[in-house]
Design a protein around this nucleic acid. Structure first.
Lengths: 193, 193
DNA sequence: TGATAATGAGACATGTAAGTCTCATTATGA
DNA sequence: TCATAATGAGACTTACATGTCTCATTATCA
């Protein structure tokens, strides 16, 4: 389904714009189109040649970021192996896709406005699928909904990214910190009754 | 330190504006001053009588929200009793202060721009203080920094509020879900080696 | 009741990002 | 090398939130 019509140059520019948009908007939602163009190292007029509207750009960036996260998820092979290990791979992948995730997750409105008119690739394994598999195997907390667990997962990944952004966590320690938080929470196992 | 000069009417109106600002901006950062005025059930001109600038309003709302959260924290008496129970009271208080927290936490920029010129009340017990006390007593994970634990706490409280907003969690179940996530994470204790 | 405070509605000016267009320049591929 | 695609700079208009102001109305308090 990729655009075979588009020249190599154009599709490269398009990708650069989408990546810049996600990256810039993740850090500042009010960022100007000029800001985004500058980050993508292109002229503002060029940006308008690819996306007529600001809304058009944001929509495309959401879809693109979704695909990227979807792809990372797929590459983590979350439908294979023990759920706990699959989850660890997924968390690492999500931390890698850092600002895409921050862009999607950081703005509740962007996402919810768009979930209606966007259908995910059904052939790919989903995060909720992994969670439900884990719950069935008694690994993930079965007392709460899979959606809630997914929300927590996203929130922790986002928090880890943000903490790294402001220097609270070293980049290389983010995945471990998030994994630890997701699996154990903040109370030491020994202290539990 | 409260304004004794201001009439009852004025201070009531002022509070209504600040509450509305936090509530509206928590749900939409790009919200118009007209949106905020409408939510506060006042005219836009009245809003300008109280806050000359948009920035002025946002700053005041940040300070105010800070005070509210600070007060909730104080009322939870987090410097007393076992850390785990104090933390449970704190989480309940934070969930109560829902949109104030979402306003502060939802916009990293708003907060970080302001932490410089805003000094917290040093006579009040802090969240980090509670966490460090818990770590010293071996209750909270001592392997990570107290600041990271605080970030996770805020993120979970925010996520709980958001989940309730979109109907993913029932209002009365939020505090329990957040507490559970904070203490145990998402992996069932029995499944741990 | 009367004086003053507080407000709402709305007209008006302003600043800034968004969107459109032209034209000269650079890059790409046959 | 040549034709065409792609781009950058910048002038220009538009749309909209913002901020200021006036005036009539309502609320509050002595």
């Amino acid at each position: 389904m990729t655009d075979t019509r588009e020249s190599g140059t154009r599709s490269r520019t398009r990708r650069a714009i989408l990546a810049a948009a996600a990256s810039v908007l993740a850090r500042d939602r009010g960022a100007t189109l000029a800001d985004i163009a500058e980050a993508a190292q292109i002229g503002r007029s060029t940006l308008h040649r690819y996306f007529s509207d600001r809304q058009d750009l944001v929509n495309a960036a959401v879809v693109d970021s979704f695909r990227v996260v979807e792809k990372s998820t797929a590459e983590a092979a979350i439908d294979q192996g023990p759920p706990l290990e699959a989850m660890r791979r997924l968390i690492a992948a999500m931390v890698d896709a850092g600002d895409r995730l921050a862009f999607l997750f950081g703005d509740p409105r962007v996402l919810e406005e768009f979930t209606a008119c966007f259908e995910p690739d059904l052939s790919l394994p989903t995060t909720v699928g992994l969670i439900e598999r884990g719950q069935a195997e008694g690994v993930f907390d079965p007392a709460v909904s899979a959606e809630w667990i997914q929300q927590v997962l996203w929130a922790l990944a986002y928090t880890g990214w943000e903490a790294a952004e402001k220097g609270l966590l070293p980049r290389h320690g983010v995945a471990a910190a998030v994994t630890r938080a997701f699996e154990n929470g903040m109370v030491v196992p020994q202290a539990r009754p």
